[in-house]
Write a protein that binds this DNA or RNA. Structure first.
Length: 734
DNA sequence: GCGGGTCAGAGGTAT
DNA sequence: ACCTCTGACCCGCGC
C-alpha cells in the first residue's frame, strides 16, 4: 500500500515525490502485504512465511539499509528535474493568474486551448478507426479460420500505441473498450443531469399551476407526461455524432478487447463499443449495404453477427451450450409479450439462415436480471455460436415462428453457471457465509456498514493489524485547518446551479447527479461541495461524498499484492467509494519521522498534480473552476516549491482506503474535494468509481508514479515490478 | 414495496 | 415507412 500522490503527470514532480518521500517505498512491492501488517511483519513466524513466498522475497530484495536516508538527498538528475519543474509550475501559475485577471477573455482562451486538446484526441481516434477499417479482414467460413484470425488480431492488439506526453503508452484493446465505456458513462451522466433538471422544472411548474389555478382541472400537462427521455439513447446519439463509437462497422466474430464473459450493464453499452449495433433489436445483422465492401464480396447478405437472448420470446429455449433462438417478428411488443402474427423469413431471420449456409459465427449475449447493475440487468458475452439449422413451426401462441439452433463453438472459455445465470452467488449473504473470515469488522463499528477481512492465503490466516481504524481524517498538532468557507444560501437541497454559490464554484454546475444516491458526472480539477456554512441540508446532492460508506466492502488477502479491497455490491461509475483518511500532517514533519518507520501509506495532497493527472476518467475540458476562484491565491502564494505541503498519513491510522492497491488500469480515480473550507492544499481526497464495477472485482486506483522517476542514492533509476495484472500493465510501478 | 402495464425512443433496413 | 423491444416511469394491488 504505497500511496503516492495520485497521478503525477509531471515527471519532475513525481521525481521529487518519489525521490524524497517515497524513497523507502522502493523495496516494498506495491503495497505488499508486508507493510499492511506491521505486527505480522515483525513476527518471526510470519517473516518465514514471506520467505516461502518467493515473489515477496524478491520484491524485498532491493531494500538496502542506506536507501531511505540517502534518497532524501535528491540526485543531480532529480535536482535538474526539480528546477525544470519549478519553472514549469511558475509559468503555469502565471498563466492561471493571468486568466484570473482578464476574466471573460481568459476563459475564452482557456476553453480554446482545451478544445485544441480535444481535437488532438479526436484525430487519434480517427486514425485508429481508419486503421481498423483498412485492416485486412479475413473471412471466416470455418471455425478454425476464425480462431487463427483471432490470434492474428490478438497479436496486433498490443502493437498500437499512443504517444501521450512523451511517454509511450500502450493502449490495449481492453483499454480502448474501457475508455469507450467511460466516455459513454460520462455522456450518460451528463444527460441524466439534464434530465433531472428538466424533471425538477416540470415538477415545479406543476406545483405552480396547481397553486395558481386549482379550478383549471384540465390544465394541459404538456411535457409533464413521460419524463423519461432515455439518457442512454441520447448518449449514444452523441457518441455517433462525435464518431466515438469504438467499432462503427459491423464485424463478424470476436470484437477486440471484449472477452467471453464480458459484462455489459445495458444494451446501450453494446452499441457504444460496436458489439451489437442496435439498442433494441435482438438480432444484429449486416444488411445489403455490406455487399459493396470488397472484403465481404463473397457473402450473401443479410448476415447475422450478434444476437441477444433476453428470454423475452416465449419460444426461446436456452441450455447454455445449445440454444434454440426464436426469430424476430410477429411479436406483440408491448403488453403480454406474446406472438400475435406469423413470422416471415426476412431481415434478422434471413440473416441467421444465411449464417448456416455460409458458416458464419454469431456472437451470443445473454441478458440476466441482476441487482448488480444500474438498470437491474446485466448482459454477458457468452462467446461465438454456430448456427446449426433452422425450421419453422407453430409456436406456443399458435403462430408460425422461425427457430434457429445454435451451438457454442468449442475451445472457448468455459461457460460457468455464474455467467449463464448471472447472480451474486459468490457474494456472501451473511457473516457466517464468509470464507476465510479473519476479522468481522475492521472498522470496529465506526462505519455504518461493517468491513470484514478475509484471508485464504496465509496459514494460519492473519488479520490486518498494526493500524487504528478511523473513519474521518485526524489533524495533527502542527496543522491548522483553515476557517470554514462561506457557503450557499439554498434551502433544503441545492437545485439551481445559477443561484447556488457552491454550484457557481464548480463552473455553474453541480458535479453530481442525484441518481443512485449521487454520482460524480466526471473527474474535475476539484469538486466544491456544500459545507457547514451552507443553507442546504444533509440530503443535498452536492454533499455526495460526505455520507460515508455506501457499499459493502471487504478487505481480502491477495496472492501477490498483500491486502486488497473489493465490494460485494455493484458500484456504478461515478459513485463515491471512500475517502482516503489518516493523519493530516505537514510533509516536512513526515520527512523526519516516517522513513525510519517504513511508512508506505502517505498520500500527498496536491491538487495540481491530481488535476493534471491521467487515468481515471477524462477530466472536464471546459472546467472553469480553477480560473474563477479565489482559492488560487491561497494555494498559490509565494512559496512556490512544487512539493506538496500536506500529506495524509495512513500508516498508523486510517480507513479502508489504505488497503486499496495500485493498478495500471484502475477502476477508481482520485478526486480532490473541498467542503468545509476552500484551501486546495488541504483538500479531502476521495476515491470514486471510474467504471461500473461488478461485485468482487478488486478496487484499485493509479498510484501515479511516472516510470523512471525514482532514483536510488547512486542516482540510478530504480524500478519496481507491478503486479496489477492489467492488460496494459506497465510491468513496473516505477 | 412489488409487479404488470405503458410508451417513447432512434438508427438501421428496405421500400 | 417500418421494425425492433429496452428502460424507466406509472399505477394499482396486496401486504
Amino acid at each position: 500500500m504505497v500511496v503516492q500522490p495520485p497521478k503525477c503527470v509531471s515527471p519532475i514532480q513525481s521525481a521529487i515525490v518519489t525521490g524524497e518521500l517515497k524513497a523507502e517505498v522502493a523495496d516494498d512491492s506495491q503495497h505488499l502485504m508486508v507493510s499492511t501488517d506491521c505486527k505480522a511483519e515483525k513476527s518471526p513466524r510470519i517473516v518465514s512465511k514471506y520467505g516461502r513466498k518467493g515473489i515477496k522475497t524478491e520484491q524485498k530484495q532491493p531494500k538496502e539499509p542506506e536507501e531511505s536516508s540517502m534518497q532524501r538527498r535528491a540526485s543531480a538528475r532529480i535536482q535538474a528535474k526539480q528546477k525544470a519543474d519549478k519553472e514549469l509550475l511558475v509559468r503555469r501559475r502565471v498563466e492561471l493568474l493571468d486568466e484570473q485577471d482578464d476574466g471573460g477573455n481568459e476563459t475564452k482562451s482557456r476553453s480554446k486551448r482545451s478544445r485544441v486538446t480535444e481535437n488532438v484526441v479526436k484525430e487519434e481516434v480517427v486514425e485508429e478507426e481508419k486503421r481498423d477499417i483498412t485492416a485486412p479482414k479475413s473471412k471466416l467460413d470455418e471455425s478454425t479460420k476464425l480462431e487463427s484470425k483471432a490470434k492474428v488480431k490478438g497479436s496486433e492488439e498490443n502493437v498500437d500505441s499512443k504517444n501521450g506526453g512523451g511517454n509511450l503508452v500502450e493502449k490495449s484493446d481492453t483499454l480502448k473498450v474501457k475508455q469507450t465505456l467511460r466516455l459513454f458513462n460520462k455522456h450518460y451522466l451528463h444527460l441524466v443531469q439534464e434530465e433531472e433538471q428538466r424533471c425538477r422544472k416540470v415538477e415545479a411548474d406543476r406545483k405552480v399551476s396547481k397553486k395558481g389555478s386549482k379550478s383549471k382541472k384540465g390544465a394541459p400537462p404538456e411535457d409533464i407526461k413521460n419524463p423519461s427521455k432515455r439518457p442512454d439513447l441520447k448518449a449514444l446519439s452523441k457518441m455517433m455524432e462525435n464518431n466515438e463509437i469504438l467499432y462503427p462497422e459491423k464485424r463478424i466474430g470476436n470484437i477486440p478487447g471484449i472477452k467471453v464473459g464480458h459484462q455489459f450493464y445495458s444494451r446501450a453499452e453494446m452499441v457504444a463499443v460496436g458489439f451489437h449495433s442496435h439498442w433494441l433489436n435482438g438480432i444484429d445483422y449486416m444488411g445489403q449495404s455490406y455487399r459493396k465492401g470488397l472484403e465481404h464480396s463473397k457473402y450473401t447478405f443479410p448476415l447475422a453477427v450478434a444476437i441477444v437472448l433476453s428470454g423475452m420470446y416465449e419460444d426461446d429455449l436456452d441450455n447454455a451450450e445449445d440454444v434454440v433462438y426464436t426469430g424476430q417478428g410477429g411479436h406483440n411488443l408491448t403488453g403480454d409479450k406474446r406472438q400475435i402474427r406469423d413470422q416471415v423469413l426476412e431481415r434478422g431471420n434471413l440473416a441467421l439462415k444465411n449464417c448456416i449456409e455460409q458458416r458464419v459465427l454469431v456472437r451470443v449475449v445473454r441478458g440476466h436480471e441482476s441487482a448488480s447493475s444500474y438498470t437491474g440487468k446485466v448482459y454477458t458475452y457468452d462467446g461465438l455460436y454456430k448456427v446449426v439449422n433452422y425450421w419453422a413451426e407453430k409456436g406456443i401462441s399458435g403462430f408460425t415462428v422461425y427457430k434457429f439452433r445454435l451451438r457454442r463453438l468449442e475451445g472457448q472459455p468455459t461457460l460457468t453457471t455464474n455467467q449463464v445465470y448471472f447472480t451474486n452467488e459468490r457474494v456472501p449473504q451473511s457473516a457466517a457465509e464468509i470464507r476465510g473470515l479473519v476479522c468481522e469488522d475492521i472498522t470496529a463499528g465506526q462505519e455504518d456498514i461493517p468491513i470484514p477481512a478475509t484471508n485464504l492465503f496465509d496459514d494460519p490466516p492473519v488479520a490486518p493489524t498494526g493500524f487504528t481504524y478511523c473513519k474521518t481524517i485526524q489533524v495533527s498538532k502542527n496543522v491548522k485547518l483553515p476557517a470554514e468557507g462561506t457557503g450557499c444560501n439554498c434551502k433544503g437541497v441545492c437545485v439551481d446551479p445559477r443561484s447556488c454559490a457552491c454550484a457557481l464554484r464548480n463552473g455553474s454546475d453541480f458535479p453530481y447527479v442525484s441518481r443512485d444516491g449521487g454520482r460524480l458526472i466526471e473527474a474535475k480539477d476539484v469538486v466544491f461541495e456544500c459545507g457547514p456554512n451552507c443553507g442546504c441540508g444533509p440530503g443535498c446532492v452536492n454533499r455526495t461524498s460526505q455520507r460515508g460508506l455506501r457499499y459493502r466492502l471487504e478487505v481480502f488477502r491477495t496472492a501477490k499484492k498483500g491486502w486488497g479491497v473489493r465490494s460485494w455490491d455493484f458500484i456504478p461509475s461515478g459513485a463515491p467509494v471512500c475517502e482516503y483518511t489518516g493523519i493530516l500532517t505537514r510533509a516536512d514533519d513526515l520527512d523526519r519521522l516516517d522513513y525510519a518507520n517504513d511508512n508506505n501509506y502517505i498520500f500527498e495532497i496536491d491538487c495540481l498534480q491530481t488535476m493534471k493527472g491521467v487515468g481515471g476518467r477524462e477530466r472536464r475540458s471546459q472546467d472553469a473552476s480553477l480560473a474563477d476562484i479565489d482559492l488560487l491565491d491561497k494555494s498559490d502564494d509565494q512559496n512556490s516549491e512544487s512539493a506538496p505541503e500536506f500529506c495524509i498519513d495512513a500508516g498508523s491510522t486510517g480507513n479502508v482506503s489504505r488497503f486499496i492497491n495500485h493498478s495500471c488500469e484502475p477502476n477508481l480515480f482520485v478526486q480532490c474535494v473541498l467542503s468545509s473550507h476552500h484551501d486546495l492544499k488541504l483538500a479531502r481526497v476521495m476515491l470514486f468509481a471510474a467504471d461500473n464495477i461488478p461485485p468482487l472485482q478488486e478496487l484499485t486506483y493509479d498510484y501515479g508514479y511516472a516510470l523512471d522517476s525514482v532514483c536510488g542514492p547512486d542516482g540510478k533509476i530504480k524500478q519496481m515490478h507491478c503486479f496489477c495484472g492489467a492488460a496494459g500493465c506497465k510491468k513496473r510501478l516505477f
